[in-house]
Design a protein around this nucleic acid. Structure first.
Lengths: 254, 254
DNA sequence: GTAGTTTGATTGTCCGGACATTTGCATTGA
DNA sequence: TCAATGCAAATGTCCGGACAATCAAACTAC
């Protein structure tokens, strides 16, 4: 007699609230994600078939599929036709997201500090104009900031923004990150194009970051677009590699 | 009389082949993507409502939605309830994918060359064992390669693989990339955890890459997992920043 | 004229079903 | 014993419909 595989979801307390305004598929996917997170669904275990799961919850199969699919897109589950849906052996933290350095540091418990060096309006150089898609020599905001952690400089951030998009208050910039300001101003961030590289520090850069001239620096350039396709920010950042590196998770598009 | 907005999809020749084995939603999404790619669907234009589109193609609305959704996930379209579906103002190239340096170079028309320096089996160090999830001192493959473009060294790649996963033929490694070898060996890549940083070159590193000691180097470490959650590769790479930088597109998870 | 209201258009969610395709396992046959 | 066949299970694809939520524009009232 073959070993009877126990369906883990049977023991799981799954339920949906039909009177709630939050979509049913979302309620389900959140519960499944939580179960995976705290180990109720162990990696590698099968996730019992969709039909029965739908029946037990009183949902339709498309709704259950939508919930499962969202977790597959997050990389938490793997589906195999003819086999079933499996929980991926973790290691999955979170995919690379469009996050600000500020948020990264804050979630790492570093209590970042920001010092605004420059907050002014300048004519756009050719490089900035091309990145933001505005006319050369037209007005753009220029912000230069120094990001500190534990009172040590960590990164030098130079950003350009198109005019009239955002009220750029120096006090607010020191209290939070630029991305958070943009979001609260009603800008829907959509995508960004990034380049990460390295180079030797110039004398000016070295001074700002308390490094020596010629020391290796990690560099990042980014143009960010909102959901209408407008470029809303162009940034040129330099990081001290001893204090910061880019860490992220990628999923294979299949 | 208000200006009559012309629905761009009306002029588009969309059609599906029901006898084809390729899914209908996929046929549609490919045609839409192609139309966006070569400009038949201009950025910012509305993509006429789903219901009518479905009717015109003789498809059901869920099928059309599935096609549209896949393009939304790729960042090519934006949906707004009560408004419609818009083509994103381009700038979108491709999202960050789990690609090999080899493929990157090849698609840039650089005809990369690879020189295998080391291809052997060694006992796993603590670091390697932790990354691959194997016992310390157990056997692992070790590969060291030098990647060249235009006869100039560009990157030094050091990789560790668990044993028995792959036949590692030196000739094959020089002819193509490691990732392509893994895929053709039937390994389904799923996700990877990466760290990108910078540091000064040691004397040995400088010699390998034809740089000077202390010159800035771009570094990348990566652990790759297949869809069963096994770690299938751990790599430590160093790049010459004058020859290579990481360039990619991110989408905001919403 | 301006502010608030209605209304039409469009996507979001959800249902219940049908059949196809793939996989793994058990059975059968040589 | 081993290979080929058949079967059951699971996900993949697709349909047609229903109602809800949201947004923008037209409309109305002041």
């Amino acid at each position: 007699m073959p070993k009877q595989e126990v369906d883990p979801t049977v023991e799981l307390e799954l339920s949906v609230d039909r009177s709630s305004p939050v979509p049913l598929y979302f309620q389900l996917s959140q519960q499944l994600e939580a179960a995976i997170e705290h180990g109720a669904l162990t990696p590698g275990s099968l996730l019992g078939n969709e039909i029965e799961l739908a029946a037990r919850l009183g949902l339709s199969r498309p709704t259950v599929r939508q919930a499962i699919q969202s977790l597959v897109d997050k990389g938490l589950l793997v589906r195999r036709r003819g086999v079933g849906t499996q929980v991926v052996h973790s290691q999955v933290k979170r995919p690379l997201e469009l996050s600000s350095l500020y948020d990264d540091l804050e979630s790492a418990g570093q209590r970042p500090a920001t010092k605004v060096l420059v907050n002014t309006v300048v004519p756009a150089s050719a490089e900035v104009a091309a990145a933001l898609g505005v006319a050369e020599d037209s007005d753009v905001h220029r912000i230069e900031r120094l990001r500190l952690a534990h009172n040590e400089p960590m990164a030098y951030l130079c950003n350009f923004l198109p005019p009239g998009l955002l009220g750029l208050d120096t006090a607010q910039l020191e209290a939070t990150g630029l991305y958070r300001l943009m979001r609260t101003a009603g800008i829907t961030l959509h995508s960004a194009r990034q380049t990460i590289g390295a180079r030797a520090a110039t004398a000016a850069e070295a001074e700002r970051l308390a490094e020596e001239e010629g020391a290796p620096l990690l560099t990042m350039q980014r143009v960010t677009f909102d959901d209408t396709g407008r470029a809303v920010e162009y940034g040129t950042h330099t990081y001290r590699p001893s204090r910061y590196s880019f860490e992220f998770q990628l999923l294979v598009r299949s």
